[in-house]
Design a protein around this nucleic acid. Structure first.
Lengths: 228, 228
DNA sequence: GCAAAAGTATGATTTAAATCATATTTTGGT
DNA sequence: ACCAAAATATGATTTAAATCATACTTTTGC
């Protein structure tokens, strides 16, 4: 974790996009750019909330642990995405952990300045509220799925979500490379079960895989698996 | 579903509590009080969002379906609680259903007026955002639990949550009476499994039951079951 | 007041998915 | 370039919980 020399462009993140223009210099003055190495923990569940983060480059996983070995990954944040915002509730303690999946540069804003920013930008507050409402909908949909959808459907859904979020590389692969364990933890299952399901998907020509790169061959079949 | 003559006191709900005093007459002029019979659906997943609701009396369950017979209950809203707020995101479609558990009276505010209210009450918007942040934390905690906690722990947690939310009756029972199926649907399990677990809890003297009334005998034991 | 529907009770059977065990391959650090 | 650690691959076994089947009991609508 080192301060990064690279200054972000103040244009692409949720914050800069929703703030009144004259506030941008204030952000510039108050932001800190920080770099994290692959695998490095950015903050841990239970840590005191000190500020809010925006991804400048790289990918950050947001996850919550059950014990030493079991986790559930909520999402993978990419450039422009905000994280650490779950800490804005009553209790100023992070309810989740965040870890750099690869080399990551973030923009960090401390809580005091972010609070002032919210006071000064009503429309940012409104947008943030709306953003939360959407996240909550997503969370509850996933909750329902974790209870009632079978694992195969959840894996299908995870693959579709990754594609929707990260798009395709030039060769048509989903533009994010994750370990099988991370895919499993996002789908809410174990590595072994994920492995078997992916093997079945490959056998049935729903997907095609080259190392960590995944190519979706039959989206419709995956969609079908992830509906009632 | 009938318009209710009873006017609420404009004091106890989330809206009235966080709005500037001079706005209350506006709320009074724009609210509608509606009554629902036991079992009546207030709105359904997929319906157009037209407004937001506050419980005046009775209990409302907020749930989401998988197919005809499977559901997951997110929460039980009681007097003062807001519901329908999940519909405030981008898509103006309710992502959940709500049903009256018993006779319910609600206060209904249409979306247009609620939006104006948010514009006029920045601190309400801020509180609402904070409220969402808390809900999101809860949702994610439950998500993690649905994946990694065993059913017995989830049942223990549901019982503790019901007690925390609804308190105790004069005789010391949890002050809400739900069907076993609803308790099961909140814990994310089936009726039969819930039945067996409750039988085990009774046998082990963790709880005591009289019809639909539940008495928690050993809170600490339930707490222990619902931690890693 | 009664029939039908909804809710409760409980044992038996099935099944999906976790766990365990072990081998092989890849990768990152010095 | 090399060793250890991490990630991948895969079969075998166990297990928790869902499903099925059936009987009884309490509500509630006409």
């Amino acid at each position: 974790m080192i301060k990064s020399p690279s200054a972000c462009n103040l244009k692409d993140c949720f914050l800069c996009q929703h703030v009144v223009a004259h506030w941008l210099p204030g952000i510039k003055a108050n932001k800190t750019n920080i770099q994290f190495r692959k695998g490095e923990i950015i903050f841990n569940e239970g840590d005191q909330v000190k500020g809010i983060y925006f991804v400048y480059s790289g990918i950050v996983k947001v996850h919550k642990h059950w014990d030493e070995k079991k986790e559930l990954i909520f999402r993978f944040a990419k450039a422009g995405d905000m994280f650490g915002y779950r800490g804005l509730g009553n209790e100023k303690i992070y309810p989740v952990s965040t870890t750099a999946i690869d080399q990551v540069t973030v923009c960090y804003i401390d809580l005091a300045f972010f609070d002032v920013t919210l006071q000064a930008n009503q429309s940012l507050t409104y947008r943030l509220m709306q953003f939360y409402a959407n996240e909550l909908q997503d969370a509850e949909k996933r909750m329902r799925n974790l209870v009632h959808m079978e694992v195969m459907g959840r894996v299908a859904e995870t693959l579709l979500l990754l594609r929707a979020n990260f798009g395709l590389s030039a060769e048509g692969y989903i533009n994010i490379m994750l370990s099988r364990q991370d895919i499993a933890s996002h789908a809410g299952t174990t590595y072994e079960t994920l492995f078997r399901i992916m093997r079945a998907f490959i056998k049935d020509k729903l997907i095609q895989v080259k190392g960590k790169k995944i190519f979706i061959l039959r989206e419709s079949a995956l969609k079908k698996l992830s509906s009632p």
